[in-house]
């Protein structure tokens, strides 16, 4: 909302500082973006995306990391999406905000969301890798990621279910539909954009993850043969190139562009989906 403009010294000062910070933010983040693109652009071509790395990642491409990242994301979602949807149904359709078990669950989810990723990584290392003897593997990484994205998934899906007007449930009941049929044939289809949004947000979150993967999925650069193989995600690759590989900067820049590009696509998807949701929203 526009406030009426009046120019007294205090207002000019506030306006000045606001513009200063806004421009500073624009400048700094713009510079970051420009620097990464101008440095990585030359190294980036089709071959970079489709070939395996050579010489510790200095040369060659990043195909195994792209595959590993995809596998990690896919299986993390495979594990947590069903749990997320069912938990969200339970929270939204069967409990009120005051319900005791629901409050406990919500509290657990908030706590889970706050756990630092390195701590999550320690847990994944101690439990999945060592106790369950899965070893450093994509499976251990995906399981750890699955726990990390669960709160985000459940919260977003619950919101989209709660946003469906109550009349739909009443009408369905009046028509003699059982609650299970109401959920699966009316409510879930109506919430599908919301669910898609939750998935997109979780993928973005999981793709940005690095610390939790170091001690669970490991950082082997080879193309993974199976889920039990260690695999290096794109984010871990950037970390390793810039810390442990002298002369790996060019490849790190190019990998960063690939990762940023994926994040941008995810962002565009979020914007499109949220537009869809507001347009479709009956309220």
């Amino acid at each position: 909302m526009k406030l009426p403009s009046n120019y007294n010294p205090a207002d000019i000062l506030l306006a000045g500082f606001s513009w200063l910070s806004g421009l500073l933010v624009l400048l700094c983040f713009g510079y970051l973006f420009a620097d990464i693109f101008s440095n990585g652009y030359a190294h980036l071509d089709w071959q970079f995306i489709t070939t395996a790395p050579e010489n510790a990642g200095r040369d060659g491409g990043i195909a195994p990391m792209i595959i590993s990242t995809t596998i990690l994301l896919f299986f993390a979602l495979l594990f947590s999406l069903p749990i997320g949807i069912f938990s969200a149904i339970y929270l939204a359709e069967y409990t009120s905000y005051e319900h005791r078990f629901a409050r406990l669950l919500r509290y657990a989810l908030n706590t889970l969301a706050a756990v630092p990723s390195i701590v999550m990584g320690m847990f994944g290392f101690a439990f999945f890798v060592i106790i369950l003897q899965i070893g450093f593997s994509l499976l251990a990484g995906a399981l750890t990621l699955a726990i990390m994205i669960l709160p985000l998934l459940i919260r977003n899906i619950e919101d989209s279910l709660r946003n469906i007007p109550h009349t739909y449930r009443l009408n369905a009941a009046a028509l003699g539909l059982s609650q299970v049929r109401t959920i699966f044939q009316i409510l879930l289809p109506m919430a599908k954009h919301g669910i898609a949004m939750a998935v997109v947000l979780s993928v973005g979150r999981a793709m940005a993850e690095t610390a939790a993967l170091l001690f669970t999925a490991g950082y082997v650069m080879r193309m993974p043969d199976s889920l039990m193989d260690s695999g290096r995600s794109l984010s871990v690759h950037i970390f390793d190139l810039s810390m442990n590989v002298p002369g790996g900067e060019k490849a790190a820049y190019a990998t960063t562009i690939v990762l940023l590009f994926s994040i941008l696509i995810i962002n565009a998807a979020t914007v499109l989906l949220s537009n869809q949701i507001t347009r479709r929203s009956p309220m």
Partner: peptide, 18 residues
């Protein structure tokens, strides 16, 4: 919104370089 979603490791890398 875009920058909130960017992996922290990218900022770290850029920090190392710049």
């Amino acid at each position: 919104e875009v920058f909130a979603g960017i992996p922290a490791v990218v900022y770290g890398f850029w920090g190392v370089m710049v």
